[in-house]
């Protein structure tokens, strides 16, 4: 759906100016970018026409910006400002991308990248969440670990690639380990902060009503830490994708990264290489969008989402 929706306005962009293209595109597409946003729209109940129009307008502007940049790229390449040998115009990248989709070639590597991403983040979360809850709720543990965490966190995960290859070989395990290591920190630290930042009045309320310790954790502390944890997961998601593709590029573990290097070494298949890069970008965009949609639903009560839920 993405590829067929995107190239169409590009050709229009070639003939007309981006500004002239915008009203038409605004009418054309509530679908692609609106995906995550649409879920919030359903909560709106009775929708005022004014607000719907404002949203459509905002969406239209966003789309116009995308179309504008694509058109500009096309122009820059066609005018010879960028050497066409290294920078194929968007009008060649998008069809190359479409061919990858149609032939089904796209899905294997995307699946492999996604597999590493999912397993890595799951492994990280499985350790980081309970550990973060423990560190956040036990003051002694918090003080003991503070400096160690601050020291371990800034280690760039990619620095561990050689060690990981030695330990695991250049396979999926190695990729999962790398992602798990890199995404462990944001999830852990956000969980610790979230647990630690629970409002003291809420804690007192729960205690004064005689809630036992466990109930206070489950019913008061965890829900109030959830927005922090969600942010941790979203940061982890972005880092995870970067690390997945890095592992593939550097070590050759199968996935989008390998497809990029393969396309590069194939010589005259520049447009295919860029199509794979586009695929990586779209994957990141979709992952982030899906996480945000889940967040919006689960945390509909949180200050940052209330405006949309009402």
């Amino acid at each position: 759906m993405q590829p067929s929706a995107v190239p169409a306005p590009v050709h229009r962009g070639e003939v007309s100016t981006p500004a002239a293209g915008s009203p038409r595109t605004a009418g054309a597409g509530p679908t692609p970018v609106a995906g995550p946003r649409g879920s919030a729209g359903r909560n709106d109940g009775p929708k005022e026409p004014g607000r719907a129009r404002a949203r459509l307008y905002r969406f239209g502007l966003g789309l116009a910006g995308v179309v504008g940049v694509i058109a500009l790229l096309e122009l820059v390449v066609r005018l010879g400002l960028l050497p066409e040998a290294w920078f194929p115009p968007p009008s060649e990248i998008f069809p190359a991308f479409a061919r990858l989709v149609v032939s089904g070639e796209l899905f294997g590597p995307v699946g492999q990248t996604l597999q590493g991403w999912v397993l890595g983040i799951l492994a990280a979360a499985a350790v980081a969440l309970p550990l973060g809850i423990a560190i956040g709720s036990i003051e002694l543990a918090h003080r003991l670990t503070r400096f160690m965490l601050e020291f371990l966190r800034p280690i760039p995960p990619v620095a561990l690639i050689p060690a990981a290859v030695l330990i695991f070989g250049s396979n999926l395990d190695m990729k999962v380990f790398l992602i798990a290591f890199g995404t462990f920190w944001p999830i852990l630290l956000q969980t610790v902060y979230g647990i630690h930042d629970t409002d003291p009045t809420l804690r007192d309320t729960a205690r004064s009503y005689g809630l036992p310790r466990r109930a206070r954790l489950v019913r008061i502390v965890l829900p109030s830490a959830l927005p922090y944890i969600a942010t941790g997961l979203r940061i982890a998601s972005a880092i995870g994708l970067i690390l997945a593709i890095t592992a593939e590029l550097v070590v050759g573990t199968p996935g989008i990264g390998v497809s990029i290097t393969d396309a590069q070494s194939a010589g005259d298949a520049q447009d295919v290489m860029y199509a794979w890069i586009l695929a990586a970008g779209l994957l990141g965009f979709l992952l982030n969008g899906s996480l945000q949609a889940v967040e919006r639903r689960v945390l509909h009560w949180h200050t940052s989402f209330r405006g949309e839920a009402r």
Partner: peptide, 26 residues
Amino acid sequence: YVFQDYSRSLLPWQTVAGNVSFPLKY
């Protein structure tokens, strides 16, 4: 105990009814 800061002593993720009933189970 009724706290001064009602906005902080109510659970924002619970409905009004949920806020009233959550201590009762315990």
